[in-house]
Nucleic acid binder design. Structure first.
Lengths: 255, 255
DNA sequence: CGAAAATTTGACGACTCTCAAGTCGAGTGG
DNA sequence: CCACTCGACTTGAGAGTCGTCAAATTTTCG
């Protein structure tokens, strides 16, 4: 945590980028360069749509504070396909895709740093290592998507919810925002339902189930986790896919 | 189709890469450079595992002929998280991630072209445009993952199956392997079940349902689609997310 | 306080899983 | 050629998970 304070003092907008992942492989020059790629810091209100599906944009946004989700819609039904925490370069995709296939919405108020695409382009042209890290960060999103596809295919709603909160807790920890006993989040039960592909009603019953089992207490924007290890076991959560610190996660497992 | 013959004559291994997507934006020099990045062409048997989760590798593979799937496993249960057709740079991810979070397996026999990572690295260092296209191709995978997450969250098994085959048909069309009435595939009903997160038994009932509705006839490695438009409608399939030709798909829709 | 949003509960029906069998087709050895 | 085997496919019955409709309760906030 002490390390984070120093890092955030030096790089207030981008100091959490890839923290706990490959940030350690970034030189101070690269960290500085990334920080300097930011052209503006903007505040958003709860529910604001940062980017809408199909729109073009000429800058990408890094999430500095708050939470965001990617959403897709079909037949009027909203699906949340991913969740984002501070340090995530939420729509870096937009740089290479030009138009996004999805929306990015704020869950609660949020602060973002905008990075113009021409600065990314310049980085692509003359800093292959940093470019590769940017690429890496988008592939991380893909790895998260894959894990979530597997969990949707294998788990029931209570376990899906347990998995979601296991992952969020873990990711918050990696960027220096973790607490052992849980975390605060502006997510509603409806939001969580949209992440699970369940109705809000069924999600509510699942929450009640988790509460009864004393695995997870979710109330009024506060998530309390009595025993992290038990929650992880119940959710079949194995954080390798987050590519956490050091030996690139998977190394220790299959070597 | 005539255009594909010429393209494949010139670029036998990589001629389908991004076909129907951004291939038109590649210069002849870039196409040649990509083709020259291939160091070897290898044949695989049905069921071969090209890359296993957690392993490192120093080359990536482009699928030249045949089909492959990405798989994840948990508690002994296999999940298929994506499907690949010729022209897909199946494990380009591996370049930036170093270690993959998933396996890549052959469905039926397959031919692949291997691309050493040092050649990709060289491209990253001196060809920003081609680098960006490589990046784009991995983001396409992520977009496919997102769409699939939404479909898992919204559709029942028969519709999920209809969506899978709608997508495969569409993607085969983009790389010059489409036929109006269906396609051949070594997929089994069990494989499809693993893509849907359903049991083989339930998938079988879903296939029977689709057959009864005359939407899709799947038998012994052959998929027959009587009416593509009806199948798409039933599956709620909208191919924008495949980023097809020209105006980048989404342009025509939301402009 | 009153309205809107979020959460909770109950009943019933639809979707999907599990267990248990049974059928079909391709390849093998006699 | 036939009996055999194996994998893929098919069918049935009962139970668990989840969606829908309907309504009540609690919280948030102007």
């Amino acid at each position: 945590m002490i390390a984070f304070e120093e890092e955030l003092r030096r790089y207030p907008n981008t100091g959490r980028f890839l923290a706990g992942r490959l940030r350690h492989s970034m030189s101070q020059d690269e960290r500085l360069r990334l920080e300097d790629m930011v052209s503006a810091v903007v505040h958003h209100e709860a529910g604001d749509r940062i980017i809408a599906r199909g729109n073009t944009c000429d800058n990408s946004t890094m999430l500095v504070e708050g939470f965001m989700v990617r959403t897709l819609e079909s037949n009027g039904k909203r699906s949340i396909v991913s969740f984002h925490v501070p340090g995530d370069f939420v729509d870096l995709h937009c740089f290479a895709l030009k138009r996004l296939d999805h929306n990015i919405d704020c869950i609660g108020p949020a602060t973002v740093a905008q990075v113009p695409h021409d600065r990314i382009k310049a980085t692509m042209a003359d800093d292959p290592h940093l470019s590769r890290l940017l690429w890496f960060s988008t592939l991380l999103d893909a790895a998260l998507h894959r894990e979530w596809i597997m969990k949707l295919e294998q788990l029931t709603t209570p376990r899906r919810i347990a998995h979601i909160f296991s992952e969020i807790g873990c990711r918050l920890g990696m960027v220096g925002l973790g607490r052992p006993d849980g975390f605060d989040t502006p997510l509603t039960q409806s939001d969580v339902a949209d992440m699970c592909g369940a109705t809000a009603i069924h999600a509510n019953r699942a929450f009640a189930d988790l509460r009864r089992r004393d695995l997870l207490i979710f109330e009024r924007g506060r998530v309390h986790i009595p025993d992290c290890a038990e929650l992880h076991a119940y959710a079949d959560f194995h954080p390798d896919y987050l590519y956490g610190e050091g030996d690139l996660a998977l190394e220790t497992e299959d070597a």
